[in-house]
Write a protein that binds this DNA or RNA. Structure first.
Lengths: 332, 332
DNA sequence: CTGAAAGCGCTTACAG
DNA sequence: CTGAAAGCGCTTACAG
């Protein structure tokens, strides 16, 4: 593999000159330029990012820690991150944690050893992970939180106002005349409490009672029976607010199997607006999260932080959701 | 940021000894061990992967070039790759090409500059990309092709026998008594021709005519009208073999909107078995691809290649598909 | 068991 | 405009 020495020798100049040519900083005479260019091509020379990283103290790599790539939501966020980073000349190293605290801490450590210039961290948060984030922050590593927070640490972050989104989802249902509205959550996503607060507050504001019987949890334990449980409630719900689209789609399917028509007999609204939301039958009414924008914003915050370090004040960006009305909700 | 020099000084040994301790090769006295360990912890020392990479000439990073992360299929494959690589102590740098030849070539070049120890390359292939692959192969970089081939280059590869899968899909439909079977493809996926060949051969073997009128293309241009076009054929199809699940699901939705019952009036079979296939209504009969296994196998081939380089014979692994019968297909 | 030294392939002042 | 030299933080024989 050709090195800068090979190029220098073949072009009859010093490595310093080749370096200046490569980085387009400092002067290089036209004559030298041409010879170097020719040598680079003849040798198929590609400068070593590793050596560069060592001497320049920046790798132009960033770490992205995600809970799961096999989830319709994450890849779109990652896409947004990569688009921005790619443009800025950075590579993204993606690490899966499976939502496990131990793996999160390990991912952070490994990425740090790799000397990434910064990191973007997605949920969920764990104690081990948080401790590691704190440690890295102390070491001066730029980090941006995406969709999660870590009280007490002055870190940049981007979040979606899911509370507001939940309120909007509820207002949509309320405006359609529903008064018995179920909330379906997922045991693993307990932390996403903004949605539940929005559900509660919207109900309260509408002067409706908060009935714990209308709170359901879709766990593997119960899988496939949420709807059954709903129907057993006296004065059963006429509408369902699901904490995410995946769950909403499962409920739609359960309804279909029992001959319950959506939205005629039951209205269902989801959350996220995953790619499939528009393709199910009936197309799902949902609260869209700005997935790509989330990623892009996080990337931009990180870039700014990498370039300015401590001199920049901490930024916390809050993005808003959007109600997408499709066919799964109707007047009661 | 602490370096190996800081650790050595604090522990009262030379950096060579610290290095030996870190890599657990060579002897280090018990006394030295303890002092070094203490110094490492006190300083929060994490050895620089960059410096390591430069001197050891291996970065323990691999590149993964994918067409698109926002596609139910890819993330699962990537997952399989990461699981294996992670275990072997490698990081995966993922690069998106959007299926664009120019971006593919660029991705390869950038990854090479980063001195990844090897790469796994997913479809589609492009001329620019192929030229770059050839160039890198000449430079001695280990590369594994996943789900694609590049005739003429002796590269390791893993592929799924989609031809066989297509034949099985067709045999399933034929066994149900269908004789007029449509094939729906996607303009962007023209290259995935194994499926089409399987469709044709199965028909031929069954002694059925090959009717070009039954070949449809789902392109954005026609989007939403495939079914309409199908119904205009005289003696219209009673079953549809779709080149992938996404398309199959779109067709199901179109059918639903026109009041055509699946599978009563029309049987539909997909390909891939994406996560959602089981969640649509009716649950989709499909040909499952071993997504995670594809990734794992590619990772294992690459690992072997990295360790043994040229001494290993070229390996070409062919994985098989599996028919998953659900509810979208029925007797004619 | 341990240290001194060279080397990995670049960048970056510093002279000239 | 250009070269010589130091340095980035490790690994790896080589002596001892």
């Amino acid at each position: 593999m050709a090195t800068i020495y090979d190029v220098a020798r073949q072009a009859g100049v010093s490595i310093g000159t080749v370096s200046r040519f490569l980085n387009q900083n400092g002067y290089v005479s036209e004559a030298a330029r041409e010879r170097i260019q020719a040598a680079v091509e003849a040798l198929g020379f590609a400068p070593s990012g590793v050596a560069r990283g060592l001497s320049s103290k920046q790798t132009r790599m960033i770490g992205v820690v995600v809970p799961d790539l096999v989830n319709l939501f994450i890849p779109e966020v990652v896409r947004g991150i990569q688009d921005v980073m790619d443009n800025a000349g950075y590579c993204a190293v993606i690490y899966n944690t499976d939502g496990l605290g131990a793996r999160e801490a390990r991912a952070l450590k490994l990425l740090y050893e790799r000397r990434v210039d910064g990191m973007i961290l997605l949920p969920p948060s764990s104690e081990e992970g948080n401790a590691q984030i704190e440690e890295l922050h102390r070491q001066g590593l730029p980090q941006v939180l995406l969709g999660r927070d870590l009280p007490g640490l002055p870190l940049d972050s981007v979040t979606v106002d899911t509370y507001r989104g939940a309120v909007e989802a509820m207002q949509h249902l309320l405006a359609l005349g529903h008064t018995r509205i179920a909330f379906v959550s997922d045991r693993r996503l307990k932390r996403l409490s903004g949605r539940l607060s929005g559900y509660r507050d919207a109900l309260e504001q509408a002067g409706l009672p908060l009935d714990d019987e209308l709170l359901f949890e879709m766990s593997s334990m119960y899988k496939g029976t949420v709807l059954d449980r709903m129907l057993q409630v006296q004065d059963p719900p006429t509408a369902v607010f699901s904490m995410n689209d995946m769950i909403a789609i499962d409920v739609i399917q359960e309804a279909y199997q029992r001959g319950i028509k959506v939205p005629d007999h039951l209205s269902i609204i989801g959350f996220d607006d995953i790619t499939f939301a528009a393709s199910v039958q009936p197309p799902l009414t949902t609260i869209a999260q700005p997935k790509s924008l989330l990623g892009q914003t996080a990337a931009e915050l990180l870039l700014a932080r990498i370039e300015q370090k401590a001199s920049l004040p901490v930024q916390e960006v809050l993005l808003s959701c959007q109600l997408i009305v499709r066919m799964s909700t109707a007047r009661r």
